[in-house]
């Protein structure tokens, strides 16, 4: 059962007052849901449509446009590898393949133990330090295979 916390509902309402159009509050609203649940379900979209009085298709347009909104539950560590131009030129796509092979998952999927999710994302705004990856909200820059090994190893030790 989808139930957004009251303070988050209030936050969304205040965001809707903040901008010229309430459509501008769609991204902050989606963030409120994702912060609580870790992802955004279709029930959540219907809930937001009712709450904000915006057609659900319009919210879905925004939701599916951005790679930072998760369309399904993610693992404990969400590895988001940038495959936009600069990172791709610096080997971002090959690194994604490497990570996927290492963790035995496909891009977009989560490992069987629920620990890691891997996804390709659009520009993380750190082209000068390409290739770049985000683990949840933490940036890892100037990556190579050795660095990936290190990062994954240290994450595996955490519980």
């Amino acid at each position: 059962m989808f139930q957004l916390a009251n303070e988050r509902v209030e936050k969304i309402k205040s965001e809707m007052q903040r901008y010229e159009t309430k459509q501008s509050a769609i991204i902050p609203a989606l963030y409120q849901v994702q912060e609580q649940y870790g992802w955004v379900s279709k029930e959540a979209l219907d809930f937001l449509a009712d709450l904000m009085e915006i057609p659900v298709a319009e919210i879905r347009e925004v939701f599916t446009f951005y790679t930072m909104f998760n369309q399904k539950p993610t693992g404990k560590f969400h590895l988001q590898v940038c495959t936009n131009i600069s990172c791709s030129m610096a080997g971002g796509r090959e690194l994604t393949d490497y990570i996927c092979k290492k963790l035995n998952v496909k891009p977009g999927d989560t490992t069987a133990d629920g620990k890691f999710s891997v996804s390709k994302v659009e520009c993380l705004g750190s082209c000068d330090t390409a290739p770049v990856m985000q683990n949840n909200f933490e940036y890892h820059e100037n990556l190579n295979e050795a660095k990936i090994d290190q990062i994954i190893e240290s994450l595996q030790k955490l519980n």
């Binding site: 057609p55 347009e61 599916t64 951005y66």
Partner: peptide
Amino acid sequence: SELGIFNRGDRSEIGTH
């Protein structure tokens, strides 16, 4: 407003929620 354009770039597609 049932229809929208979902996803982005070359994966964009129209559809309903």
